[in-house]
Amino acid sequence: MKEIIRLREVNKTFTSEKGHNIEALQDINLSIEESQFICLLGPSGSGKSTLLRLMAGLMDASEGEVEVMGKSIKKPISEASMVFQEYSLLPWRNIIDNVAFGLEVRKVPKKEGYAIARNILGKFGLEGFEKNYPYELSGGMQQRAAIARAMAVSPEILYMDEPFGALDAHTRLQMQQELISFWLKDKRTIVFVTHSVEEAIFLGTRIIVMSSRPGRIIEDFQIDLPYPRDRWSGKFGHYFNRLMDLMNGKSSITEEYSEVYNQCNNL
């Protein structure tokens, strides 16, 4: 399979207002192949969103190299788009004008842009809501529109930053199902950030687990389960337990020890 994203020796350090350096990402080496559904899994503070922003070109690495589609990335590229957790639709635009935004800035003629947007809205079950404003839609529908907007520019890569994190449990399950059936038909590369172990196993072909402070990759493996996945199967449970142990730091004593040691040093 073809490599589409590559990170080499990436470090990211933030400087706080008081002048302290906070290491958000440390020694990230990663290669992502195309047509994969990658889940970046980790607790809050593990730098998974930072990592996603680096890949999306919304942020620069302090050290190291981030390459997307063979090119070093400095700013967002037209071959990728992104879905955020919430409040990313422009509230003064109706749904179709939101979905057509990416086409508009690409100078696609208005009629053509609307045709594409209408078509994609249909795919996401939003026909009939073209003229509605975001505030008139439920959280789930707003996120559907946000995904439709990101897909409207036919990206090679779709970045998703906890897109279902703000939804209620029921809507969340429904959206996961919809996303998977969409991806199965479409198979474009998705990099999906989540802190939910169960969501990661349900969606991902590969899970990259991160630890917090500093954010490092502590585990990286394929999920060998056929789609659609059954949350109640034994194998699902097996993955779940393994990941929970990892997230709780039980994978290796030294890891846990160094974590505690680091925290003590920081005090």
């Binding site: 999306a56 992104m82 955020f84 409040y87 800035v105 990101a150």
Partner: peptide, 18 residues
């Protein structure tokens, strides 16, 4: 202005003027 609004349009291909 919400930062996610700016970030989201940047990832949709908007330039500074947009």
């Amino acid at each position: 202005v919400q930062k996610t609004l700016v970030d989201s349009v940047l990832t949709l291909g908007a330039n500074k003027w947009h």
